[in-house]
């Protein structure tokens, strides 16, 4: 695809801008910023990936993954600002999920240990983990507030913080995992996944594209479960002090 042809794709940006202006939605500025950012970011990533793939150096691969984790943390931590130490909890979760998935993929030789595989898969794993974290943190902070009476009731009856927060924690973990599980139920029927579509458009064998897509789907199930559960169990203890008293959420710093 030439850059001239690609520029015609901007028609798809003009349509929402036109609709936003007509209906006075006020989304024109955000749409333009999102478009410009995506062009710059993706082009930059394209050039960086070309360099990293050519170099085949483990240090560059690691740096790319660190960059992904840093960007994902920066994005997700805004939603959990009310939870003490959320930045390190997110970094810990993303690193663990990345190491776990790559260890299985490389350890069992499911994928080859090359930048061409490690980086895109890491992007999908960390990206999915970030979305899951945001879903989890959004739900968890609202569950804590809405279930405050129940939480205090269990504490007042002699329950531990873990018992008191159990319902909020489980509801948040479940709610954050549902989109991943539900989208997998209809995959191929309602939507063709982006990665598979991209491979098919690029001329790959559709069956091979499906095989890779299945690999990614299964990977994302683990990512979803591990991210929500790990982040949940890392987060809840910071809501209580040593006397098993519930601390107030600093909701003023929570942008959710």
């Amino acid at each position: 695809m030439s850059y001239l042809t690609l520029s015609l794709a901007l028609i798809f940006v003009l349509i929402p801008i036109f609709l936003s202006k007509t209906l006075k939605l006020g989304l024109e500025k955000d749409t333009i910023i999102a478009t410009v950012r995506s062009i710059i970011q993706l082009l930059a990533v394209g050039y960086v990936l070309t360099f990293v793939f050519d170099a085949e150096n483990f240090i560059y691969i690691t740096l790319m993954v660190i960059l992904m984790i840093a960007a994902a943390t920066q994005n997700a931590q805004k939603k959990g600002a009310a939870i003490k130490g959320i930045t390190w909890k997110l970094i810990g979760t993303f690193v663990f999920v990345e190491v776990l998935t790559q260890a299985i993929l490389l350890g069992f030789q499911i994928t080859p240990p090359t930048a061409q595989y490690i980086i895109p898969i890491s992007g999908m794993v960390v990206g999915n983990s970030m979305v899951l974290s945001i879903l989890f943190l959004n739900r968890f902070t609202s569950e804590i507030e809405t279930r405050q009476n129940e939480t205090e009731l269990i504490l007042s009856l002699g329950g531990t913080p873990k018992q008191a927060i159990h319902l909020s924690l489980m509801a948040s973990i479940k709610a954050s995992m549902i989109p991943t599980i539900e989208s997998q139920k209809t995959i191929g029927l309602v939507q063709l996944p982006g990665m598979m579509s991209g491979q098919i458009i690029a001329g790959a064998d559709p069956v091979q594209a499906v095989q890779f897509q299945l690999l990614i789907l299964f990977l994302l199930l683990t990512t979803a479960a591990v991210t929500s559960i790990m982040l949940g169990f890392l987060s809840y203890p910071t809501l209580f002090n040593k006397q098993m008293q519930m601390l107030k959420l600093d909701t003023e710093t929570n942008n959710s």
Partner: peptide, 10 residues
Amino acid sequence: PTELRRMAGL
């Protein structure tokens, strides 16, 4: 804390 809360029921 758990002992206290069982002893002073609310």
